[in-house]
């Protein structure tokens, strides 16, 4: 009798029914809440003109102050919570599902049955991995889209597609991070063969991996920073520099040599006198910055999954 091609998917999802249903519902809840909060923020009517006027401190359009109070009240009370939900649900769900894929099976001893039945453990691994990979990706993407929408609502005038704000916590990068974290859970679970210790170890590795990766990417972005001629709301600023008469840029550490500070304290309001420029990355680069981060995460995921395949091929079934 020929097996239906979708049966392995069904079996795997049933093995992870609790996690997929629980995190699926949390994802839906997060999306609904994000869109609700975003709609509430939009309804306040605190637009770009109000933001600019309030920032400049001059006379603001009628009602801007009241709107600002209401807007930032919603941002601090509701958007913060929803934003945390959108960030952590993909991370936690990816870890819990990832650890269970191989680790829990080894712990329960079901690999003894499965690995004795299949001439190819890789086939078994593919049957187990593919459906949960899709589940985690969908959860991550849903939350990523919701986080984009929330960002657009909390930062009037900012276009999430051209902004480097909250990089990694929204859009497709969030899904890529979730998949990477899941792959860490999968490989640690496969090595340790016990779900709970693997969860602890995988959490530490994932946190270090994500934080370390962000640091590295930050360093790369810093090295790529250029003078931003016209500041946009989605730009990422790294430094403020001064332009010497010859065109050379110097920082605060050198400015006193080229532009001596005034003798009296009162005169410091007009110092430094040299023209200032901002060093940063334009928000319009978000597309390629995002792609690079996804690429790095995909590479990490691939390495983790290849390691998993190696471990599954060689280890005892528990």
């Amino acid at each position: 009798m020929t097996a239906m091609p979708f049966q392995p998917i069904g079996h795997t999802l049933r093995l992870h029914r609790f996690e997929t249903v629980a995190f699926g519902l949390l994802a839906v809840l997060g999306v609904i809440l994000a869109f609700l909060v975003a709609a509430r923020l939009d309804a306040v009517g605190y637009g770009v003109e109000c933001v600019l006027a309030m920032r400049e401190g001059g006379a603001s359009p009628r009602g801007c102050e009241l709107k600002a109070n209401e807007f930032y009240d919603i941002v601090s009370r509701e958007a913060g919570l929803v934003s945390a939900l959108l960030t952590f649900v993909p991370f936690v769900s990816a870890l819990l599902i990832g650890v269970a894929v191989v680790g829990r099976e080894i712990e329960r001893g079901t690999t003894r049955l499965a690995w004795a039945l299949t001439p190819s453990r890789l086939r078994w691994l593919a049957h187990r991995l593919a459906p949960v990979l899709v589940v985690v990706a969908v959860i991550g993407l849903l939350m990523g889209v919701a986080a984009d929408r929330l960002l657009a609502a909390t930062e009037p005038g900012m276009d999430p597609a051209n902004a480097l704000a909250q990089l990694g916590q929204r859009g497709p990068v969030l899904a890529a991070r979730a998949i990477f974290v899941m792959s860490i859970g999968v490989v640690v679970g496969a090595v340790m063969g016990r779900a709970l210790p693997a969860l602890v170890v995988a959490t530490v590795i994932a946190v270090v991996g994500i934080a370390g990766g962000s640091q590295v990417h930050d360093g790369i972005l810093r090295s790529e920073a250029t003078v931003i001629e016209q500041a946009g709301p989605g730009d990422r600023y790294f430094d403020q520099l001064f332009v010497l008469p010859g065109g050379r840029l110097v920082g605060w550490d050198e400015i006193e040599q080229h532009d001596p500070p005034p003798a009296t304290f009162e005169d410091t309001t007009v110092w430094p006198t040299l023209p200032q420029v901002t060093l940063g990355i334009s928000g319009t680069r978000y597309g390629d910055v995002q792609l690079r981060e996804i690429g790095a995460l995909a590479g990490g995921t691939l390495v983790a999954l290849l390691l998993t395949a190696l471990v599954v091929q060689r280890r005892r079934p528990g």
Binding site: A3, Q7, P119
Partner: peptide, 13 residues
């Protein structure tokens, strides 16, 4: 069914 998907030639019947 699982055995049939994991093992080619498994006699489910």
């Amino acid at each position: 069914r699982l055995a049939a998907t994991l093992r080619p030639g498994f006699d489910a019947h």
